[in-house]
Amino acid sequence: MSSDVTSAGRVDGEAGAPAGRVDGEAGVSRPASTARARVIGGTLSLFASELLTLFRRRRTWALLGALALIPILIAVAIRIAGDAPSGRGPAFLGQITENGLFVGITAMVVATPLFLPLTIGVVAGDTIAGEASHGTLRYLLIAPAGRIRLLAVKYAATAVFCAAATLTVVVVGTLIGWALFPVGPVTLLSGATVSVGEGLVRFLAIAAYVTVSMLGMSAIGLFLSTLTTVPVGAMAATAILAVVAQIMGALPQLEWLHPWLFTEYWLGFADLLRQPPVWDSFADNALLQAGYLVVFGALAVSRMVTKDVLS
């Protein structure tokens, strides 16, 4: 009897082997839907386990805690020292004393260039290299997790962390702003005013924007992570690339390159604070990040399926 094991493996179509060949073995197939359901169910189960592992780790909470400190520091500093002279400091800083809801947005402006890529670089760079350094990569692969499936699940978990990171900044910022400052209808960049409720929805949209912004860099981190068994190397390289890309983005001499930099639209989320909101930069950003995901995802896959696991 041919097995459902085999048929599941075939429908999967996963190049789970270094050779990367497609399993062409003939077998009596079970209904494809059942096999596919098992593949999906198994993948969800692995994804759930991966999330559990990520969020059970003290380091993950330390990273999120560090991000939460940014809005807290901003709010407390302004509360104690009063308003900054207008025109200085990060965007939106001046609005905070009038409307505490702006703490979250100010913190996002502060976190996006460095702190956010740093924390996300830690998680993305750790994906495969961290498992390799613990030796758990070999046990995941002989379980067998499937090389591509493992990669996909690792990336998805990193994306969840990106969302958690940006939400931490926005939510903690909004809460502390609410606690320390007066809160009222939100004055947008265009001068229009929207209700507190709509203002909060816009802030969530900004969190989504920044999450999407980080997906390309996460793919880069994932790829770098497949290259080494030293996670710190992949983490540092990812964060350095984010900084380098932003420096190049600031050099007018490299203007031709700017549209291709994954950091190009990172601070473009202010467009969501116009009335009506301008979604162009969101769309451009999403397309660019998707491009990075495709390219570096493909690189990561090709590296992963041919990789000798010797750790």
Binding site: V5, T6, A8, A17, L52, P144
Partner: peptide, 30 residues
């Protein structure tokens, strides 16, 4: 044939390779 059929073969194989390896921050059960 390995490694061509890892997906169908390995579920039927239990292994200890070059010593055990675990995530140190998780419990044995986890």
């Amino acid at each position: 044939d390995m490694p061509r059929h890892v997906d169908s073969v390995l579920p039927r194989v239990g292994a200890l390779v070059e010593g055990p390896a675990f995530s140190p921050y998780l419990s044995g059960v986890a």
